[in-house]
């Protein structure tokens, strides 16, 4: 069974509804609730009268005549002479978001502005990572521990992939890597710093423009 709503809550609920009730905007059910309660509750009936007086007081505020006319002497310069069509706003938003994403992803992955190995020269991702471990830039003498680790790797895998073979070869041969491998030309996405900056500014400007326009004319 439903419990009856406690009296303080019922008063509160009715008083919340009274505003809409006075404007004839309450639903049928709300109207019945208000009328039934007010008929028996002196405090809420008084509240209803006071609320009605309040509404009347605001409505009674005089309409002040403007001190001057606000007609325009000349057409203001159109800020949006190049205004985009109706699909312009979504397009600007998507462009701003895409530019941000490209810049951030580029920075995170290092694909923009930092050298990366050429994809065709990469034997495998495992080889790259392992090679980075055992081939410092200056190609120093491998430590005994590193040699041991590579040997154990070769033992564990009876049919080592090309990457491991390469690693075994490079660890066995303490000489520096072949010149053509060492001088492998890095791939650099041709994105100059000033272009990065310009794209960033464009993205920020697009976002700011969109926000301003949205706020000014909601």
């Amino acid at each position: 069974m439903f419990r009856r709503r406690s009296e303080p809550i019922r008063h509160q609920r009715v008083r919340e509804l009274l505003s809409s009730y006075l404007d004839a905007q309450a639903s049928e059910r709300e109207r019945e609730l208000v009328e039934r309660h007010v008929a028996t509750c002196e405090a809420c009936r008084r509240y209803q009268e006071e609320l009605r007086d309040t509404v009347q007081a605001v409505r009674g505020l005089p309409q002040v005549t403007p001190p001057r006319t606000f007609t325009l002497a000349q057409a203001p310069r159109q800020r949006m002479a190049w205004a985009l069509p109706s699909w312009g706003t979504p397009l600007a938003t998507a462009t701003a978001a895409a530019l941000f994403a490209v810049l951030i992803l580029g920075e995170v992955t290092g694909l923009i502005g930092s050298p990366v190995a050429h994809p065709t020269a990469m034997p495998s991702s495992e080889a790259l990572s392992l090679k980075a471990l055992v081939q410092p830039e200056a190609a120093p003498e491998p430590t005994p521990a590193a040699s041991d680790a590579l040997e154990s790797l070769a033992v564990q895998d009876e049919t080592p992939p090309a990457a491991t073979q390469e690693l075994s070869r490079s660890s066995a041969d303490t000489s520096p890597p072949p010149p053509e491998e060492a001088a492998q030309p890095p791939l650099q996405v041709p994105l100059l710093p000033w272009l990065q900056g310009a794209l960033g500014l464009l993205a920020v400007a697009s976002g700011a423009w969109w926000l301003r326009r949205r706020r000014a004319i909601r």
Binding site: R15, E16, L17, L18, S19, S20, Y47, E50, L51, T54, V55, A57, V58
Partner: peptide, 10 residues
């Protein structure tokens, strides 16, 4: 908002 505003005005 209308209900709360009017209640505070009162």
């Amino acid at each position: 908002r209308l209900s709360r505003g009017r209640a505070q005005l009162r």
